[in-house]
Simulated scan of single mutants.
Amino acid sequence: MYTGFNLKGIIIGNNAISKKGWKSLFEEQKTEIRSALDKYITKDGVIDGHLIQEDWFPEVKADIFISHSHNDEQLAINLACWLYDTFELVAFVDSCVWGYANELLKKIDDKYCWKATKDVYDYGKRNCSTSHVHMMLMTALNKMIDKTECVFFLDTENSVLFKDIGNKTLSPWIYGEIEITRTIQKRRPKRPILRSFSYDQILEKAQDANEPLKVQYPLNIGHFKVINNDTLNQWKATNTTGMEALDKLYKITL
């Protein structure tokens, strides 16, 4: 990762069907996992977590990681389509590729956590299985953020709360993603660019229950450069593509 941008008040038209086929880029990446869990169980009866992670949460090639609230998924997809159609830049929206976490968790829970005699899941075993699946996903997120050049954070009312007392978020995933961007090593692109500048963070993805548990986390996004629709329009006017387009964005936001 090189740098991050805090996108405020971004309005992108409904381009969910990209003219250049952004979604088709990930069709091959989506793992057709519909087989039994037995595939991942070793001779000793132990689940191979690394193999599951490789199959269910594969790494993909992308230029930009879009950090967003689950409720802003369509906005993230629209932005990804716009970036691809306008600049030929590939943005990664995790829910479009890694939408398997709950399905994987249910497969594990049905096999290892179900108490048939009481017709319920075992609470302790469920805690254990959830921690394993979420750790697999978190590890995959770390790798993706590290490999992309930029992180775009969608700063909306769904992702950032309590601005009057400092930015907060109820999403542990957004909190985690942003903290990742604060701690991973920043790398300048090998190609020449104007000059380096400050970088930073992001994350999100938790599911709500009927009676949602709310835990707030500090959201320190001061290391992200703030951009808005005017910035995007100015960027689009450069009429560039690929890494040259990213370099133009860096120049505009210096």
Score class of each variant (00 low, 15 high):
54 E>F: 09
24 S>M: 12
46 V>I: 13
15 N>D: 14
45 G>R: 10
54 E>V: 15
36 A>G: 06
13 G>K: 15
35 S>T: 15
27 E>D: 13
17 I>P: 06
37 L>T: 09
34 R>Y: 09
16 A>C: 11
39 K>A: 06
44 D>S: 14
45 G>C: 14
41 I>H: 00
12 I>G: 00
52 I>C: 02
50 H>K: 05
47 I>S: 00
11 I>R: 05
38 D>M: 03
38 D>G: 08
50 H>F: 05
50 H>M: 04
13 G>L: 11
52 I>M: 05
43 K>P: 06
22 W>R: 09
44 D>R: 13
39 K>Q: 06
47 I>G: 00
20 K>C: 01
41 I>M: 01
10 I>Q: 04
45 G>Y: 09
19 K>D: 03
18 S>T: 12
25 L>H: 05
39 K>R: 07
20 K>Q: 02
11 I>W: 02
30 K>T: 11
13 G>Q: 13
35 S>L: 13
43 K>G: 06
14 N>Q: 14
33 I>K: 06
15 N>F: 14
27 E>G: 09
22 W>E: 04
46 V>S: 05
51 L>S: 13
11 I>M: 02
27 E>F: 12
24 S>N: 12
48 D>L: 09
22 W>Q: 09
39 K>G: 03
20 K>S: 02
39 K>S: 06
29 Q>L: 08
39 K>P: 04
52 I>D: 00
34 R>S: 10
46 V>Y: 03
33 I>L: 10
45 G>H: 10
32 E>T: 10
26 F>K: 03
42 T>E: 01
38 D>H: 07
17 I>M: 10
17 I>T: 15
14 N>V: 15
37 L>D: 01
14 N>M: 08
40 Y>T: 08
27 E>W: 08
43 K>D: 07
32 E>W: 02
54 E>R: 13
35 S>A: 09
13 G>I: 15
33 I>D: 05
26 F>P: 03
43 K>I: 13
51 L>K: 14
54 E>D: 11
51 L>D: 12
43 K>Q: 09
37 L>C: 03
37 L>F: 04
13 G>V: 11
45 G>L: 11
41 I>F: 01
15 N>E: 14
28 E>V: 15
14 N>E: 14
27 E>C: 10
45 G>E: 08
15 N>V: 15
31 T>K: 03
44 D>H: 12
24 S>I: 15
52 I>V: 10
49 G>I: 12
46 V>L: 07
33 I>T: 08
19 K>L: 07
43 K>R: 09
